[in-house]
Design a binder for these strands. Structure first.
Lengths: 334, 334
DNA sequence: GTGGTATGGGCAAACGGTTGCGCAAATTTT
DNA sequence: AAAATTTGCGCAACCGTTTGCCCATACCAC
């Protein structure tokens, strides 16, 4: 037999209706025990496997979750995907992947393809300069729920999982203050990112606790590229006050910043100290790792986001309620 | 309208047959220009989008490629995925993802789910201890072509893309020899991996060129875990001859090995020198990076493998011919 | 014997498209 | 002007499965 056996085949061989076979395979109580057994026996013998595409079509469900995120090769995201995939697989969902490469246009295109493929739901971490969310609103029309994680839009009528960077930043800056640093620079991300603003808030809180006042020239918004980081460093190092510690947006930024500092002849850990936000396992391999890292729980975020999405899909969730899960970040000292 | 418009809707509104609408949308020449325009206009107006699941079902094609690989969080694989995804997207294919976590059982399970989802084709990089390929042979029955990449089975009647580690290893060991090293240890992978055997061959070739003889006690098979690496290091460092250089299986292994060496009080670059195989961008962040790395072109491998798979799907490829693409690895000196 | 209720299973529609074939009208050919 | 061909479109089957509803037969109580 060239093509795989269908339910019809089984029906014909057993002189039954396809409906009976279908029910027998699903252990429907209306089908007598002996027919049920016969059907199942033959199904096994023929190595029958239901044609999922037919079922997807019929049930209007694909058991597929879409993921859109900026960059797979960033450790943070690949850890998040692991969390997503593991969780999805437990419920027999598959995972359809798309990278935006931090490009809003690509993000839009992928969102459309995902819709065309009729994914049951979508998990999204935004491209860093996405400010227009129309391509996600469009999905509501198709009844495709979206759960954002980590890089989330600044909206309340959405579902999301994110890490609150405030607490972690507060701890990180406090640590530096306790170690005697008084002029602490911060290489922050783009203003649009909530996470950037949270970092700022945490930074300010730490200063307030120590009765120091906030100096905006020490908090630089950068675009997170290598070039941007170097410019930020240049600004910080030429500040009228002498910066002795720097909070870098993440380990990649930290790495670039360290590089720049070295080029300027500074000694890491002596002239200048770094703390950062974890992109594990990167930091464990770095030549001059930050003295502390704010953990952002990528795996957990992926897992949580997927759980929420799955709940949304099984309808356990009231549609009009928006789920907001905020994990507290936590400082890990090396 | 709650549910998206269908072809039937359009037909009804225009008093046409669904077949006509379908053809009109596909610019079938048999449909008159004016009807064609009318249909397309209305389709635009209603924002008609074909229901892909219906098409998938009908055409027995899903425009989806499956990927099975060991671990997303390894930089090598996430780079490979990027290559795969980018290439697939160009042909409007989506990418379904599964991680085996280097576990053969999981690999099998995923292969089955992929089959159930009727992926059009599969890209696979094997779990490191997979020796039974029955779950991939099974796919042939369903007419799902498989292209292996990087971690490939030791078979000839398959399609694959891989990097030949021989040339790179030859270059790497030659470099060490030229630098005066005479006792060069090698932390190799599991014997089952072709890549391990290629490394051995390259190593032997280099020695032969320099008229040195091969000492099997310097070539240790390890399981690539941190623990395995430490054991391998222990063996190498206790060799009766003094090992002054080590070829590590990859950057992760190199990292662990360096760690161990440091613990033993050795000075990297002085007492002992490392070369490795690239898991970029890891090495650029390492505290004691290897002096040279064998590049394995993950993005390119992913790209090539996908191109082959796509050709297989469009039938441009003779079915009975097996495509074997072998990229030569190349040494990159820091 | 009549009516009622399980019990076991079949019929057919529906999901949303695609496509081979047929059929009329319009156009060209001879 | 009849025949042949082209043009334009509709009919209906089909892809594999699920499911609402209907229909026998059997069994029960009265």
């Amino acid at each position: 037999m060239a093509n795989p056996p269908t339910i019809k085949e089984i029906a014909k061989r057993l002189n039954l209706a396809t409906s009976t076979v279908s029910r027998a395979l699903h252990n429907h109580p209306r089908i007598g025990l002996r027919t049920r057994m016969q059907v199942q026996a033959l199904a096994r013998e023929l190595q029958y496997e239901p044609n999922r595409t037919a079922i997807f079509f019929q049930q209007k469900k694909t058991f597929t979750l879409g993921i859109i995120l900026p960059e797979l090769s960033e450790a943070f995201f690949s850890a998040a995907i692991s969390g997503i995939e593991d969780t999805a697989n437990k419920s027999d969902y598959m995972v359809l992947l798309g990278q935006s490469h931090d490009d809003t246009e690509r993000e839009k295109k992928i969102a459309h393809i995902m819709k065309d493929h009729r994914v049951d739901g979508l998990l999204v971490s935004l491209a860093k300069n996405t400010v227009d969310y129309s391509h996600f609103e469009m999905l509501q029309k198709y009844n495709i729920p979206v759960v954002f994680f980590d890089r989330i839009p600044d909206l309340t009528d959405i579902h999301y999982v994110a890490c609150n960077m405030e607490s972690g930043t507060l701890q990180a800056v406090s640590l530096l203050l306790e170690k005697g640093h008084r002029v602490i620079g911060m290489i922050n991300g783009p203003e649009e990112l909530i996470a950037s603003r949270q970092r700022t808030t945490g930074y300010q809180q730490a200063l307030r606790k120590h009765r120091l006042k906030y100096d905006a020239t020490l908090n630089i918004n950068s675009d997170l590229t290598g070039k941007g980081t170097r410019e930020a460093m240049k600004q910080l190092l030429s500040n009228k006050r002498k910066v002795t510690a720097i909070v870098a947006f993440n380990d990649y930024v930290s790495q670039d910043a360290v590089q720049y500092a070295l080029e300027q002849g500074l000694q890491i850990g002596k002239d200048i100290t770094f703390v950062s936000y974890a992109n594990l396992p990167l930091s464990s391999y770095m030549a001059f790792p930050p003295i502390a890292s704010v953990e952002q729980y990528p795996y957990l975020q992926g897992q949580k986001a997927t759980e929420i999405l799955l709940e949304l899909l099984t309808g356990k969730q009231a549609k009009n309620e928006f789920r907001h899960v905020v994990l507290d970040s936590r400082l890990v000292i090396r």
